[in-house]
Amino acid sequence: MDQQQYQQIEDQITPPTPYFKNVIKAFLVGGLICTIGHAITYFYIIFFDFTETTVGNPTAATMVFIAMILTGLGLYRKLGQFAGAGSAVPVTGFSNAVVSAAIEHKTEGLVLGVGGNIFKLAGSVIVFGVASAFFVALIKLILVTMGVVEW
């Protein structure tokens, strides 16, 4: 049996990825997390003196805090298995990646373990966020200097 024949057998038997089911679950859970976030923005606008432009920070921090608790209790992992990108894409998923790595590496100490590994999973997001921001700003500056676009 060669590799191609095997590939056929394997593809036949391996259950297909449930694309539709996964998309629906990601939509519902992702939407729900954003709706909770939306409710939190209203909370900060109504009860504290935040405006629509400044409310982003406390909202994100609150969501990150909630995700920390869920991660520590082992619940975010179950949510992730159910929701896939629905719980990974919101900022709570970023929090889960950071917090789970921090808890995991506690046994290697606070400096080498927690400090050294806290961005093991989420680090690439920061790297690509900052790097892409730099390049986008640079390109925009060049285009403005050339007179192609305005600020």
């Binding site: 391996t14 259950p15 990825t17 996964n22 991660t71 520590g72 082992g74 975010y76 992992r77 179950k78 949510l79 992730g80 298995q81 159910f82 929701a83 896939g84 990108a85 719980s87 990974a88 998923g93 889960n96 990646a97 917090v99 789970s100 790595a101 808890i103 995991e104 590496h105 093991k120 999973l121």
Partner: peptide, 17 residues
Amino acid sequence: ERQFRYPVDYGGQKPET
């Protein structure tokens, strides 16, 4: 798990396989 995949509390979605 933590060596080969993710921290145990990380919420990644595992396929049926």
